[in-house]
Design a protein around this nucleic acid. Structure first.
Lengths: 138, 138
DNA sequence: ACCCTCTGGTACAATTTGGAACTAATTCAG
DNA sequence: CTGAATTAGTTCCAAATTGTACCAGAGGGT
């Protein structure tokens, strides 16, 4: 086979760390650590710690830490869920939304700086290919 | 723009963690931690700790730890470099090569299981696109 | 009601990671 | 040659990460 899966994998991995590295300074200006950013960006879609842990594939204990930091920074707040008193519903504050949006555009900008080297056709191809590969097995 | 850089980025990231997660059990059977595996796989191309740190973008201190573990497990050994007595030339043992090759095929197999869903043309496209995006800026 | 099990979240402890200081070897300027 | 500057690698220790134990509430079954 012409394309080696392992090599492709490391390529991909390296691309991600290069991009993230290039963005970390901008995230820091917004008051966000890298990991915290991922949590912040996912809160709207997965508003409970357990959901965040599952969605981001990180341990519950780590979510606890990042959420605590984000709360301390005023980016999100907790509310007790009416349906289930064990659950902490996480809600983005106005500052949180602003920070998330700016962080997302910084990230997108850096990624786009690299996407810009490839044709629009390649971009849609890349998206299609990644989506296909991400579908759960079988 | 139709393709959102930030979304593409998270897609890509998730793909990598899903694949790595699926492989970690097999790596463990070979006696390899995830991070150690990356070092082992890179040793042939970057046979000195400093080169490994640069290639893998991890701190020198971490390389020290992983190399020590890999040596303890008998996967690599050190030799003083004749040219420069400060350098430790790292050499794969027969066991190390075997473990690396099996780990690589496990990883490739998992990645391929997902690559298999896309056409051969898409695979070469993916490789080309990633390589292009990885080139250092300007 | 009670007990048993499961789930959401946290706290603490143990492990892992990585920055900074350190030693040893090299290189280069004078 | 001497000494400053550089580089390879390690050690030290503080910070980040995470496994485990835990508590509180939910959802059974009896």
């Amino acid at each position: 086979m012409a394309v080696d899966g392992a090599q492709l994998w490391t390529l991909n991995q390296r691309l991600l760390s290069v991009v993230m590295d290039a963005c970390s300074a901008e995230l820091a200006e917004l008051g966000l650590e890298t990991k915290e950013f991922f949590v912040l960006a996912e809160v709207a879609a997965s508003p409970y710690p357990a959901e965040l842990a599952a969605a981001l594939m990180i341990p519950k204990a780590s979510v606890t830490v990042y959420v605590r930091n984000l709360v301390a920074k005023g980016f999100i707040r907790r509310e007790i869920d009416d349906e289930d008193l064990r659950r902490h519903r996480l809600i983005l504050t106005a500052e949180g939304e602003a920070a998330r949006d700016r962080a997302l555009s910084a990230l997108a900008a850096e990624f786009d700086r690299r996407l810009a080297r490839i044709t629009p056709q390649d971009r849609t191809d890349l998206q299609r290919i990644l989506l296909e590969m991400l579908k759960s097995p079988e």
